[in-house]
């Protein structure tokens, strides 16, 4: 008999400090849902229940920002780190303990601004982790400065004359940098967000899900209504996500219409972890456990020959 994992497994008692109406709630809910739903999916495909993703099997790594407090509001292994750096931290954790399901949650500034170098490198590196970017086009936690994804002309305290640079295009950059799963969702459609997260986690390789998420407190331009008027679902229009050219064109749609869904995916490519030969016989964590019990110092003696 298959029992469905209850998303409430991931609930925690911490007091949530997000503003009323913040889109982060949808993302949090979606994440909990995704872990639970995936369980059903997996249990249906495979006879054994222990391939479900339980709280102890997952690690959520976040950066700094309102949304990055997400791990604090879940019962799951979590690491709330420093601004711009969850991606390399998550990558290191995954390489050390490949059995963990690693999910990165951070904001647009954290990922595309200060974390930009790691973002681009991770796209080409293709580690088997999933990244959810809570893209609210503003720096919410530090009270309302413009962000890399703010549109040109957006007026904030650090852009009183309007932002000079045009917005960063995460979809296009990800595709160009070689990411193998590039998707966008909208917090106003939480079920779709959950679906994208599930597909992202299931995808073998790096998955980027950029979630358009209205910041009700500080961003009065990119509101739920703003998005509602523009978003449409790629799946409804017969978009082929394996077609990179098509994906590229979709990545540049923004002003009038904003495509949601999987823009691009390349399946069947080896992940970074797949190709690390030294992981074949065990992981840094598993090997250490063995060594701590049985150090076998004789195994190193032959290395001295290299210095003779």
């Amino acid at each position: 008999m298959v029992t469905r994992l209850d998303p409430k497994l991931f609930d925690s008692t911490a007091e949530v400090t997000w503003c009323a109406g913040c889109g982060d709630f949808a993302i949090l809910k979606a994440l909990k849902q995704a872990f639970a739903d995936l369980a059903i999916l997996r249990a249906l495909k495979i006879a054994f229940a222990d391939l479900d993703i339980l709280p102890h099997q997952a690690l959520v790594v976040s950066g700094i920002g309102c949304g990055s407090k997400l791990p604090d509001y879940m019962t799951v292994n979590g690491y709330m780190t420093i601004h711009g750096r969850p991606l390399p931290i998550a990558t290191g954790a995954k390489l050390a303990s490949p059995g963990l399901h690693v999910v990165v949650v951070n904001g647009d500034g954290d990922s595309y601004g200060i974390g930009g170098n790691h973002f681009v490198q991770t796209c080409r590196r293709n580690p088997d982790i999933t990244q959810i970017v809570e893209n609210n086009q503003i720096y919410g936690l530090t009270k309302g400065q413009y962000s890399p994804t703010s549109d040109k002309g957006f007026i904030t305290t650090t852009s009183p004359d309007g932002a000079i640079e045009p917005a960063f295009n995460p979809m296009a950059v990800a595709i160009a940098a070689g990411a193998t799963f590039v998707a966008r969702a909208f917090a106003g459609q939480p079920k779709h967000v959950a679906q994208m997260i599930e597909e992202g986690i299931q995808h073998r390789g790096y998955a980027l899900i950029d979630v358009l998420q209205p910041c009700v407190t500080f961003n009065r331009v990119n509101t739920y209504d703003f998005y509602r008027q523009r978003v449409y679902n790629l799946a409804d229009e017969g978009h082929d996500p394996t077609d990179r050219e098509a994906a590229w064109r979709k990545a540049y749609e923004w002003e009038e219409r904003i495509p949601l869904g999987v823009l691009y995916r390349a399946d069947g490519l080896p992940t970074y972890d797949d190709q690390v030969k030294t992981l074949d016989g065990g992981s840094p964590v598993s090997r250490l456990t063995e060594l701590a019990k049985d150090p076998r110092p004789a195994q190193y003696e032959s290395l001295k020959d290299g210095f003779l």
Binding site: L59, V61, Y79, T81, R85, P88, I89, A90, T91, G92, A93, K94, L95, A96, S97, L100, S283, P284, V285, L288
Partner: peptide, 11 residues
């Protein structure tokens, strides 16, 4: 950061 992540995971 990678080293920290790996260490956090137990290596």
């Amino acid at each position: 950061c990678m080293a920290i992540g790996a260490s956090f995971a137990g290596a």
